[in-house]
């Protein structure tokens, strides 16, 4: 897949000296779903805002489909739809009027058929004449998505689209994102919910303190940074790990009744069979054996922790 967005050495320092982005370089592939993870204040929204033209960059450049976002802003912005984090809507206009406004703002001629279908897809059609003020929070979130899609963008930024929405709407949103991807729309979403990234993203980027720590395919990331653990539950409790088991760097926990072995599940030689034989030989009695795979959340927490320790 070719790059649709190229971010090169992008930095943003706000008035007052706060460095929100620090020399970020990133290529976003056409048609992919990229999830940007990071704690509050990491720089995710600033990165999106710079690409969309809401915030001026301090250094670096961004191209969208080969066009510079400053010089060729008309071309780049017409390709982008943005769903902001906050529920920023004019409250005293109808759903229909606000999406017609958004479409016109992006230079598109009226297309009632397209907008009707869009509202139907977002379960908003029966609310089209309602003032936005009268809608629930979830419905307002859908209106923001409808506004962002009203001009048929090929790139969609979703800034924490499921923050504060119920489980049903979140699942609906995931379905919508998948449908959009199938039509060729490139989607970049920021989220706090690791399971969201795990569920729908192709690639995951982790931002912390304005720096892009890692960006990779979701599976590759889990492969590279994910660890597998085997928990050996013992019949008896022990005070220390027998010398014959030291080779495996085990951890003793559960008041001396659990041995934990951490290994790379993708390596050719995991050492599991030898370990189990050695445990048996050492006279320890096995009660149970469990294994677990580290999730994206474990990887995310680990990465941010390492990054914070490195910068401290």
């Amino acid at each position: 897949m070719s790059s649709i967005i190229s971010v090169s050495n992008l930095s943003k320092v706000y008035d007052g000296g706060f460095r929100a982005l620090n020399d970020i370089s990133l290529d976003i592939k056409s048609g992919e779903i990229l999830a940007l993870l990071g704690p509050n204040g990491a720089g995710k929204t600033t990165l999106i805002s710079v690409i969309c033209g809401i915030v001026n960059a301090s250094a670096g450049s961004v191209t969208v489909d080969g066009y510079d976002i400053v010089k060729d802003y008309r071309i780049t912005r017409s390709m982008i739809g943005l769903v902001p984090q906050e529920l920023t809507l004019s409250m005293f206009v109808s759903v229909w009027d606000t999406i017609c406004f958004s479409r016109g703002l992006f230079g598109k001629k009226p297309n009632p058929l397209y907008l009707e279908q869009l509202l139907k897809d977002l379960s908003l059609w029966d609310k089209k004449d309602n003032d936005i003020l009268t809608l629930s929070g979830g419905m307002k979130r859908r209106v923001l998505i409808a506004k962002a899609l009203s001009h048929e963008p090929s790139i969609l930024f979703l800034d924490e689209p499921t923050a504060g929405v119920d489980v049903e709407l979140r699942k609906d949103m995931w379905v919508l994102v998948e449908k959009l991807r199938q039509t060729g729309v490139t989607i970049i979403l920021t989220t706090h919910y690791i399971e969201e990234a795990e569920e729908i993203a192709d690639r995951v980027g982790v931002i912390n303190e304005g720096e892009l720590i890692v960006v990779d395919d979701k599976e590759a990331l889990k492969h590279k940074l994910g660890k597998r653990q085997m928990m050996i539950e013992l019949e008896q409790t022990i005070e220390s790990i027998p010398e014959s088991l030291w080779t495996w760097s085990l951890e003793l926990s559960g008041n001396g009744s659990r041995l934990t072995y951490t290994y790379d599940s993708y390596s050719e030689h995991t050492g599991i069979a030898e370990l189990l034989r050695a445990v048996d030989k050492s006279g320890l009695l096995l009660k149970d054996v469990n294994t677990s795979q580290s999730s994206l959340e474990d990887i995310f927490i680990g990465l941010v922790k390492v990054n914070n320790e490195g910068s401290a």
């Binding site: 809401i54 802003y73 008309r74 912005r77 703002l105 230079g107």
Partner: peptide
């Protein structure tokens, strides 16, 4: 109201 984001991000 914060809706200015839309105008600023429009072509």
């Amino acid at each position: 109201t914060g809706t200015m984001y839309e105008t600023l991000s429009a072509p």
